[in-house]
Design a protein around this nucleic acid. Structure first.
Length: 145
DNA sequence: AACGTACACTTAT
DNA sequence: ATAAGTGTACGTT
């Protein structure tokens, strides 16, 4: 297996990605970085010119644990839409808290669109920065308008 | 192995 | 405003 690493700018951040062919192992938002090759659809997506990332998937979706089920549910949320932690929890027969946990530990944000999961009364959280969540949702709402 | 604590929540007092 | 329920992870014993 050949692990490839690249980065792509998004606002003030660099989106760093580690991937191999079709499988993404890690996505991080860092303040530093250097533009380099990333999966094509990721670049288009971050540029607001694609609504669905099709050419890669996340390794976390394939696992066989409680989080993976949650992640798969999160992936069903369409572009430009948001659902609450509670709604995801209900579909997975668990509690909202657990969904929050799963989101916080999401190894591949964007690929797994955890920014579309919000709290029942407000935006909810996002790491490393809530600004990123806002920017992503803002971008999606513009395309969707 | 057990225990405590910390959460990207929600609902009911 | 505060508390209780919730499941997982992670640190400390």
């Amino acid at each position: 297996m050949v692990l490839r690493q690249g980065a792509c700018k998004f606002g003030l951040w660099y989106v760093h990605i580690d991937w191999d062919e079709k499988v993404v192992y890690r996505v991080r938002f860092l303040k530093t970085g250097q533009e380099s090759e990333v999966p094509v659809s990721l670049r288009l997506f971050l540029g607001g010119r694609l609504t669905k990332i099709t050419d890669v998937t996340s390794f976390a979706l394939k696992e066989n644990n409680a989080f993976a089920q949650i992640y798969r549910e999160v992936c069903k949320v369409p572009y430009g839409r948001t659902v609450t932690y509670g709604e995801i929890a209900e579909k997975c027969s668990t509690s909202p808290r657990v969904v929050g946990n799963a989101m916080a530990k999401n190894p591949t944000p964007v690929i797994i669109p955890c920014h579309r999961i919000v709290s029942a009364k407000g935006l909810g959280g996002y790491s490393p920065s809530i600004e990123i969540k806002e920017a992503l949702l803002n971008m999606e709402s513009q395309v969707y308008r």
